[in-house]
Amino acid sequence: MATVLEREPKGLTPKDWASDQEVRWCPGCGDYAILKAVQKTLADLQADPDRTVFISGIGCAARFPYYIESYGFHTIHGRAAAIATGAKLANPELDIWVVSGDGDSLSIGGNHLLHLLRRNVDLVYLLFNNEVYGLTKGQASPTSPRGTVSPSSPGGTLDAPVNAGAFALGAGARFVARVADVVQGPMVEVLTRAHGHTGTSFVEILQNCIVYNDGAFDAVTDKATAAEHQLWCRHGEPLLFAGGTKGVRLVPERFALEIFDVGADGLGAEAALVHDETNPMLAQMLVRLEAPTALGVIFAIEAPSYDAAFSAAAPARKPELADLQRQVGGRTTWEIG
C-alpha cells in the first residue's frame, strides 16, 4: 500500500547519498571504497532515494544501510535475501540493494542466496568477500583458502573454500560480476550494469579486511602486479590482460582455458577467446580462474524476474464485499430457526 511518487530527478550528488550517521568501519577498511562507489553510482543513476532500500544481514558489510541516505533495514545474520524477497514482492516499485558478506551469504545464509538467485528477484546483491569473519574477530570464513590459520583453526582450516561466482552460477544466477574494492571507476561501471539488469544481479566485491586478513587480494589489487592478475571481461572483446601481452584461449581437446603469451608459439592476440557474457559454460570457467582473476561482468542474460511473474500471477482483484461474503458462505448451507 506504500505510495510512490513519480518525480523529476533532483540532481543529487554522491554526497547527498551519505546519511547523517557516523561511519564506524576500521580506518583503511575496503568498505569505505565500496561505499563511495555505491554513492557515486546512485548519483550517476539519479536514483530516487525515497524508493531506494538497502537491506543487509549481519557482519561488517551489513552496517552499510546506516550510511546511505535512503530507506534501510539492517536485519539478521544470513537472512537479508529472504527479507528483501518479501519486501520486493510486497512492493515491486522498490529499488532494492542487498549488502552482505562472505559468511552472511555463503555460510549462514547460503540457502537463501541459492533461492534468491534461482528465483531471480529483481534486486542488486553485493557480496563483500574478504575471506574472513571480521566482526567476530578473525575466524576463517567459507571463502578462506584451505589451510587458513585463524583463532578457530590454529592448525589451519581443513575445508575447501566456496567460489562465490561459481556458486551463483550453479544456483542459476542470470547476472554475475566481480570487482575489487580499489578499482573505483570499473566498480561504478559494473554497479551501473548490475542496477540496470532485470533480476538478481550478483556482484562479488573482493574487499580487503585491514585488521584480520590484510593483503588477501594484494596480487590482484597491488599496482605492481594488478595488470598480470586482472582479467577484465568485456562482452565482445578478446580476453587479454597484462597490457595485451597475455591472453586466455580455449584448448578444445581438454575443454579448458589456457593462458598464453601473445606472440609466442605462433599465437597472436586473435587466438584469445572473445568474451561472450551470455555463455554459461565460459562463465563457469572464467569465475574459476585464479591467476589471473576474472573481473567485470562475467555472465549476463535476460530472464523474467520472479517479482514480475508474482505480480502477473495475482488474480484479478474482486474487491466486492458480496464476492467475499459468497466465498465465506460456502456452497452447501442450511437455515436454522
Partner: peptide
C-alpha cells in the same frame, strides 16, 4: 526461516 523473513520483509514494505 525464509518464510517468516519474507513475511517481515512484506510488513516492512507495507503489506
Amino acid at each position: 526461516i525464509a518464510a517468516i523473513c519474507a513475511a517481515i520483509g512484506a510488513s516492512y514494505a507495507g503489506q
